[in-house]
Computed example of a mutant assay.
Amino acid sequence: MRSYSVRDVERVLQLAPDTTRSLIRGGFVHPARGPRREYRFSFQDLIVLRTARALLEAKIPKKRIRRSLESLRRNLPESMPLSGLAISAVGDHVVVRDGDARWQVDSGQYLLGLDVSLQDGVLHVVEHRQAVPAAPAPVHDWFAQALNLESSDPDGALSAYRHAVDSDPHNAAAWTNWGRLLHERGRTDEADAVYRRALAQIGPDPLLLFNQGVLLEDLGRSAAALAAYQTALEEDPELADCHYNLARLYEALGKPQHAIRHLGQYRRLLSGDGH
Score class of each variant (00 low, 15 high):
residue 5 S to C: 06
residue 11 R to W: 02
residue 11 R to F: 03
residue 11 R to P: 02
residue 14 Q to N: 12
residue 21 R to P: 03
residue 22 S to G: 09
residue 23 L to K: 01
residue 30 H to M: 06
residue 32 A to S: 13
residue 32 A to M: 10
residue 33 R to C: 04
residue 34 G to R: 09
residue 35 P to K: 15
residue 36 R to F: 11
residue 37 R to M: 11
residue 39 Y to V: 01
residue 39 Y to Q: 08
residue 42 S to L: 05
residue 47 I to V: 15
residue 50 R to G: 02
residue 53 R to Y: 08
residue 59 K to F: 10
residue 60 I to S: 06
residue 61 P to F: 02
residue 64 R to Q: 12
residue 65 I to S: 08
residue 75 N to C: 07
residue 77 P to V: 09
residue 78 E to D: 14
residue 78 E to H: 12
residue 81 P to Y: 04
residue 93 H to S: 13
residue 94 V to H: 02
residue 98 D to N: 12
residue 98 D to V: 15
residue 102 R to Q: 15
residue 105 V to L: 03
residue 107 S to C: 06
residue 110 Y to C: 09
residue 111 L to E: 11
residue 113 G to N: 12
residue 113 G to P: 01
residue 114 L to P: 08
residue 120 D to Q: 15
residue 121 G to S: 04
residue 122 V to K: 11
residue 124 H to K: 14
residue 128 H to P: 05
residue 128 H to Q: 13
residue 129 R to H: 13
residue 133 P to M: 08
residue 134 A to L: 11
residue 135 A to H: 13
residue 137 A to P: 10
residue 137 A to F: 13
residue 138 P to W: 01
residue 139 V to D: 12
residue 140 H to M: 11
residue 143 F to C: 01
residue 143 F to Q: 04
residue 144 A to Y: 01
residue 150 E to M: 14
residue 150 E to I: 13
residue 151 S to L: 11
residue 154 P to F: 06
residue 155 D to P: 09
residue 157 A to P: 09
residue 159 S to I: 07
residue 160 A to F: 05
residue 163 H to E: 13
residue 165 V to K: 01
residue 167 S to V: 05
residue 167 S to K: 05
residue 168 D to F: 01
residue 172 A to H: 05
residue 175 W to M: 02
residue 179 G to Y: 00
residue 180 R to M: 10
residue 180 R to A: 09
residue 181 L to Y: 04
residue 183 H to K: 07
residue 184 E to M: 11
residue 185 R to A: 15
residue 194 V to T: 03
residue 198 A to Y: 04
residue 201 Q to K: 14
residue 207 L to D: 10
residue 208 L to W: 02
residue 213 G to V: 06
residue 214 V to C: 07
residue 219 L to A: 08
residue 224 A to D: 15
residue 227 A to W: 01
residue 228 A to D: 00
residue 229 Y to G: 01
residue 232 A to C: 06
residue 235 E to C: 14
residue 241 D to R: 09
residue 242 C to F: 05
residue 246 L to S: 00
residue 250 Y to G: 00
residue 250 Y to P: 00
residue 251 E to C: 02
residue 266 Y to Q: 00
residue 273 D to H: 15
residue 274 G to S: 15
residue 274 G to Y: 10
residue 275 H to L: 11
residue 275 H to I: 07
residue 275 H to R: 07
